[in-house]
């Protein structure tokens, strides 16, 4: 699920962007930069793009879906190139297809790469350690995709609630997201397994010797995840449903101070005397002015289009 700019706060967007930049920078450092890496990553990025366009039918429902491919990429390219390729695909989807916001890119890159490379290292690789078989590939794929997707969906929930733009409470949001993504995860896991089995039968070398995260990097990543999850949770715990941040935002949203204490009254008086229009509610002024501003903006737009067309004609 690609997050949009409308639902995240600058802080969450900034923190996640910083985290993603750090992860990408480290991945670039770790990639063995022979000349071949770049065309390989580029073409695989385009492959992910094309693959996501292939809709499959879900039996019995008549609906269709596509796979995302985080685990698939890690298994065929190794973890660090997989992170870069995911980032490239998400940037292009954001820029060209408005799929996911620009400021939300940090969130999206993090959510769609880190959980899958962690699960690949923790689960996928160990299962296949002593030889590859079809059943091992199936179990490894399903487990790592399902768990990766759960973590990824949880990331979306945390980042959205920590942003505090939507009023959707944490619990119902989690209860809506996790089960849906569990089902999606099983379907994607089964398909990932089928793809990997086919590729292994045709070209076993493609799946061989793929780099995983070292123990140190894995530990740092999990610590980072814990900090982010903890930070997100504590923000939510202290701020909702009736905490400080929530009510402060409501006050900040209203330009009028409504309080019963003496200080509030004095302040309200002071504000009234300095306000442009003490008799009118500032919100009404906001609505009227907003509508006028919008109309004016559209009029300017039309005027510019009209005159520039006239000039070219």
């Amino acid at each position: 699920m690609h997050m949009a700019d409308g639902l995240i706060s600058g802080t969450v967007g900034g923190v996640m962007a910083a985290a993603s930049v750090a992860i990408i920078a480290y991945s670039i450092k770790r990639i063995k930069s022979d000349d071949k890496t770049i065309p390989m990553m580029g073409v695989m990025g385009a492959f992910v793009f094309a693959m996501q366009m292939i809709n499959f039918t879900i039996p019995g429902t008549g609906s269709s879906g596509h796979i995302v491919g985080g685990t698939l990429l890690a298994a065929t390219l190794g973890v660090y190139p997989a992170i870069i390729v995911t980032a490239c695909v998400l940037i292009i989807q954001c820029l060209l297809f408005a799929d996911g916001g620009l400021l939300a890119l940090g969130c999206n890159i993090f959510n769609m790469s880190v959980p899958f490379v962690v699960m690949y290292t923790l689960i996928f690789k160990p299962i296949l350690k002593n030889g590859v078989t079809s059943s091992k590939l199936t179990i490894a794929s399903i487990l790592s995709v399902v768990l990766g997707l759960q973590l990824s969906a949880f990331g979306v929930v945390l980042e959205t609630t920590a942003s505090g733009i939507t009023a959707l409470p944490f619990l119902p949001f989690v209860l809506a997201m996790q089960p849906i993504h569990f089902v999606i995860g099983i379907v994607e896991g089964v398909i990932t397994a089928a793809v990997l089995i086919f590729v292994y039968k045709m070209r076993p070398e493609i799946l061989e010797d793929k780099e995983v995260m070292s123990v140190k990097v894995l530990a740092v990543t999990i610590a980072l995840l814990a900090v982010l999850i903890g930070g997100g949770l504590s923000m939510f715990a202290s701020g909702y449903p009736d905490g400080l941040e929530w009510s402060m935002e409501k006050v900040a949203g209203t330009t009028e101070l409504e309080g019963s204490s003496a200080i509030h009254e004095t302040m309200a008086e002071a504000q009234k005397s300095t306000a442009f229009m003490p008799d009118y509610n500032s919100k009404i002024a906001g609505i009227v002015g907003g509508a006028l501003t919008l109309l004016l903006a559209v009029a300017i737009g039309f005027a510019i289009s009209f005159f520039s067309k006239k000039r070219t004609a």
């Binding site: 695989m44 492959f47 693959m51 499959f56 796979i67 065929t76 089928a194 793809v195 590729v199």
Partner: peptide
């Protein structure tokens, strides 16, 4: 409509191999 779920493995796998060859 679309690709049958049972054929997805071969279909996407084939596309992947073609992509790698192209790379």
């Amino acid at each position: 409509k679309g690709v049958k779920i049972g054929d997805m493995g071969v279909f996407v796998g084939q596309l992947m191999i073609r992509s790698l060859d192209r790379a």
